[in-house]
Design a protein around this nucleic acid. Sequence first.
DNA 1: GTGTGATCATCT
DNA 2: AGATGATCACAC
Length: 222
Amino acid sequence: MTIAPPESQAVLLARAEALAGRDLAWLAGELGVAVPDDLRRDKGWIGNLLELALGATAGSRAEPDFPHLGVEMKTLPVDARGRPRESTYVCTAPLDGSIARSWEDAWVRHKLARVLWIPILGDGHPGERIIGAPLLWSPSAEEEAVLKADWTALTEAIGLGETWQLEARKGKALQLRPKAAHAREMTWVIDDEGEWAQVNPRGFYLRASFTGSILKKHFAIG
DNA sequence: GTGTGATCATCT
DNA sequence: AGATGATCACAC
């Protein structure tokens, strides 16, 4: 079953809102998709299911999920208290020198310019998890300032070849984490002594505390 | 092999 | 329990 791409952000949001409160087993049934018993071997199952349901087109290409709308969709697993259970993957971190020269050009910034967050409630059987109320979001001035500061610091460390600094402890909101099939997978970088070196590929992730603050800001009872 | 979708597994 | 580092599946 294929769903046509939404013609506007309003339509996209309306579609997402119509799914809120449903469980994933229901949605999978509507789409003719089998529900796995757990996500160990289907880590992207929820994300792919929601993309299908909302009419995303980009697939695994390096584009927003809704290219014509400039919107990226991300599911966000949350616990009973409404706090994100995991960090959120944003995109691959370029370690090879093809780094954007400014935050304005950064891939991370474009990815996060407009995001449709879809909270997924529960941590039990995938089919029993509930689709939450969606949030069509753009970073506030303060949020963008934090992201920019983190990105600048992390990018600087990459640019200087300080490979030992490419660890998850850095960054208030944005962090670098391994992003590969396994730890033996390597990519080439030039280290701080100008020598070629091999390191595990990294990706940019949003800390759960950051995505949690986004949800809290928009859904907290005033 | 790289990028997209993420969660798992382990350590502190 | 929360964070860090490791890992799984699929498309191209």
